[in-house]
Deep mutational scan, measured.
Amino acid sequence: PDFTLHWNGITIHFKGIDEEQFRHLRELLDRGVSLEELEELAKELIK
């Protein structure tokens, strides 16, 4: 499924991740993950 997340004025689209992965990403963003960390995470998910 696809998810869209609005965070700090940025709209991020996640394609092909499951709800569990999306929930994990939201928790990280709510905790204050940096954009660099988010990019690293995205690379991991894409593999």
Score class of each variant (00 low, 15 high):
residue 2 D to S: 14
residue 2 D to T: 14
residue 2 D to W: 11
residue 3 F to K: 04
residue 3 F to S: 01
residue 3 F to C: 03
residue 3 F to I: 05
residue 4 T to C: 02
residue 4 T to M: 11
residue 5 L to A: 02
residue 6 H to K: 10
residue 6 H to Y: 09
residue 6 H to N: 11
residue 7 W to G: 04
residue 8 N to M: 07
residue 8 N to V: 02
residue 8 N to W: 06
residue 8 N to Y: 04
residue 8 N to I: 03
residue 8 N to R: 02
residue 10 I to L: 10
residue 10 I to P: 00
residue 11 T to N: 05
residue 11 T to W: 06
residue 12 I to Q: 01
residue 12 I to N: 01
residue 12 I to H: 04
residue 12 I to G: 01
residue 12 I to W: 04
residue 13 H to W: 09
residue 13 H to F: 07
residue 13 H to S: 12
residue 14 F to G: 01
residue 14 F to C: 04
residue 14 F to A: 00
residue 14 F to H: 00
residue 14 F to V: 04
residue 14 F to N: 00
residue 15 K to P: 13
residue 15 K to E: 14
residue 16 G to F: 08
residue 16 G to N: 08
residue 17 I to C: 00
residue 17 I to M: 08
residue 17 I to D: 02
residue 17 I to S: 02
residue 17 I to W: 05
residue 18 D to V: 05
residue 18 D to S: 15
residue 18 D to F: 05
residue 19 E to H: 11
residue 19 E to R: 10
residue 19 E to L: 11
residue 20 E to Q: 14
residue 20 E to I: 11
residue 21 Q to A: 12
residue 21 Q to M: 13
residue 21 Q to Y: 04
residue 21 Q to H: 07
residue 22 F to G: 11
residue 22 F to L: 12
residue 23 R to N: 14
residue 23 R to Q: 13
residue 23 R to V: 11
residue 23 R to H: 14
residue 23 R to I: 13
residue 24 H to I: 15
residue 24 H to G: 06
residue 24 H to Q: 15
residue 25 L to K: 00
residue 25 L to V: 04
residue 26 R to V: 13
residue 26 R to Q: 13
residue 28 L to Y: 07
residue 28 L to R: 03
residue 29 L to F: 14
residue 29 L to D: 00
residue 29 L to N: 02
residue 30 D to S: 09
residue 30 D to R: 08
residue 31 R to F: 09
residue 31 R to W: 11
residue 31 R to G: 10
residue 31 R to A: 13
residue 31 R to Q: 13
residue 31 R to L: 12
residue 32 G to V: 12
residue 33 V to D: 02
residue 33 V to W: 15
residue 33 V to N: 03
residue 34 S to T: 14
residue 34 S to V: 03
residue 34 S to E: 04
residue 34 S to Y: 03
residue 35 L to M: 11
residue 35 L to N: 04
residue 35 L to T: 05
residue 36 E to N: 08
residue 36 E to Q: 10
residue 36 E to H: 10
residue 37 E to L: 07
residue 37 E to W: 06
residue 37 E to C: 01
residue 38 L to T: 01
residue 38 L to D: 00
residue 39 E to W: 12
residue 39 E to V: 13
residue 39 E to T: 09
residue 39 E to A: 09
residue 39 E to P: 02
residue 39 E to I: 15
residue 40 E to V: 05
residue 40 E to G: 03
residue 40 E to P: 00
residue 42 A to D: 01
residue 42 A to I: 15
residue 43 K to Q: 14
residue 43 K to F: 07
residue 44 E to T: 03
residue 44 E to W: 02
residue 45 L to Q: 04
residue 45 L to A: 07
residue 45 L to V: 06
residue 45 L to I: 13
residue 46 I to A: 12
residue 47 K to G: 15
residue 47 K to H: 15
